[in-house]
Design a protein around this nucleic acid. Structure first.
Lengths: 333, 333
DNA sequence: CTGTTAGCGCATTCAA
DNA sequence: TTGAATGCGCTAACAG
């Protein structure tokens, strides 16, 4: 390995000068600067990030804690997070988080990352203070539910107005009974979407009767939604709004299996608008979660916090993309 | 930050002893060992990975170079890679790779990761030798196409027998003209699948006439496949085998748009069996790419290579999951 | 503008 | 079994 010492010797200068050149510090004379650059070139020098980190206490690395990137929604956000982080010169290490790994994650990340981004995860208060004590800021994409004691800066959709639009649209199509399919586990960020949906219903003046629909597996996954719908007696509601798109797709598949025509018998709405929902039969209407924007803002906030500045949470708009899954207009019930 | 020095002082021993305890070296007397452990506990000591890395030249970090994790197929593999890496105590940093970033990636990863896993990427020979020179082994999931001069150890499906099974099934259903939808860009690992498909056709005795179907965008994506099918004149083949599932889904969507009934007018087959293909209308038959197994083996090979051992490429079986997209039996043409 | 030097936190050799 | 001492490659005073 060729070190900064070798470069210095080869260029006939001191190690400090090499350092200055690399860090664009103090105006090194252009001539020596070139000498150094050339020496680095000739020797094929590569700076050692580890040594630099040891000295500066910066790692230029971010951790992203995800739930399940097999879900294209999360994968999409991760994608944009990496992109955004790179614009700031940061690498991203991705960890699939489970509550039973929480202890392990602390020693894993401490001293290795400069900041943490949660993808809809709720950490224990103790864990949060662990990282705060070490000045490792945390930003969450999707507001965590268990946020009471230890608020985390977050970026998320402002669900109430978004769902109000959905509800108004459904109402206009004649729907009077609407179900909401949520996650079931209180730790899931999807539960927050449900809360906000209920609030949106209330805000629409209780014109509608809300029938909550909890599913069995509670994983926010396609399979659980499918199972839930398969085990239900024929619904007395005419539309299901799903907290995430995978569940909307699972619901749609189950409806097909049970011969409940979509949208004639049941309308379906998703909450993210991943590519997949435009490909099902029929295509499913959904709110569009602004992934790129959310990821960009999360990284930006993290950078600010790493610089010692305070920052606050932000809520974003989500447009409603209407599709065939609610196209049929008729007053039901 | 509490260092090993603090721990040593607090426990009334020397720094070396603390080091020994942490690394389970030389039999430290149980009594002092406990003293040290307790001191660490009391002070909330966390070892500094960076300093350790500087000393040992090991980072316990792997890089995964992906193309597009918005594709659930890649995301799934990444998921399993992270899982497998963790079993060995390694973290994973994920980088979305593009050829124009190749230079940047070298300085980014050198000295930060102990090994690299390619997710169907082809690196320049120069880049490969750069990493080899620095003893950073590389393993590829999915065999790269441009592999001539600089062979990379890889794990991939053995496509010829897999496709032979597909072809035999199609033939049995009456299909005589089959198209294959590939990527279009020679750098894509999907092109290798195409080559192998052609070989499978040959192996089946040229019973069939192969009509190659290249698409416009060449991204291996849903949209490109869709566009391609939308711009085609009515096909004279009765089945399309797609190099990846996203394209199969895109093809299916285009068929719907053009009112070419699937499978009556056209049968469709995918090559990965991601969740999505079972959700389309109709569900699409596909080869099942053994993602978890492939990821596990890739990491295992990388570990071996990092330990200085040599290793060779491996090819895996891919079972064929039949679905409605080819269910209809009738001799066509 | 450039050189000298002192650590960053840790693993490890060599003595004791 | 333990302690002292060295250096990994780099940054940043500080001193020329």
């Amino acid at each position: 390995m060729v070190t900064r010492n070798d470069v210095a010797r080869h260029a006939g200068v001191s190690v400090a000068v090499v350092s200055y050149v690399l860090n664009n510090k103090s105006i090194v004379k252009e001539e020596t600067r070139q000498k150094v650059l050339q020496a680095m070139e000739e020797l094929g020098y590569e700076p050692n990030h580890t040594a630099r980190s040891l000295k500066t206490k910066k790692n230029y690395q971010l951790a992203v804690l995800t739930n399940f990137i097999g879900n294209p929604f999360e994968a999409g956000i991760l994608l944009h997070l990496e992109e955004a982080a790179r614009r700031y010169g940061y690498m991203v290490t991705y960890q699939s988080y489970r509550p039973d790994r929480e202890q392990e994650i602390k020693t894993l990340l401490a001293g290795r990352v400069d900041g943490i981004i949660l993808l809809g995860q709720s950490l224990l208060a103790e864990t949060l203070s662990f990282f705060r004590k070490r000045s490792i800021p945390i930003v969450s994409v999707m507001k965590p539910v268990l946020d009471a004691e230890e608020p985390v800066v977050s970026v998320d959709v402002d669900w109430v107005p978004a769902y109000r639009q959905v509800i108004r649209t459904l109402y206009g199509l004649g729907h009077r009974h609407i179900a909401y399919m949520s996650h079931g586990d209180r730790r899931s960020p999807l539960e927050r979407r449900k809360e906000q949906f209920i609030r949106a219903m209330e805000a629409e003046g209780n014109l509608l009767y809300l029938q909550a629909c909890t599913h069995l597996e509670g994983q926010g996954k396609y399979e659980s939604a499918y199972q839930t719908m398969m085990s239900l007696s024929p619904p007395d509601y005419s539309a299901v709004v799903c907290a995430n798109d995978l569940m909307a797709i699972g619901t749609n598949a189950a409806c097909r299996a049970r011969k409940w025509a979509v949208p004639e018998r049941l309308s379906i709405v998703g909450s993210e608008n991943i590519l997949m929902v435009s490909e099902t039969h029929p295509p499913i209407a959904a709110l569009e979660y602004p992934r790129s924007l959310a990821a960009g803002m999360a990284v930006e906030k993290l950078m600010r916090m790493m610089a010692g500045e305070a920052d606050a949470s932000k809520e974003l708009d989500a447009p409603f993309v209407e599709r065939q899954s609610l196209q049929v207009i008729s007053v039901k019930h």
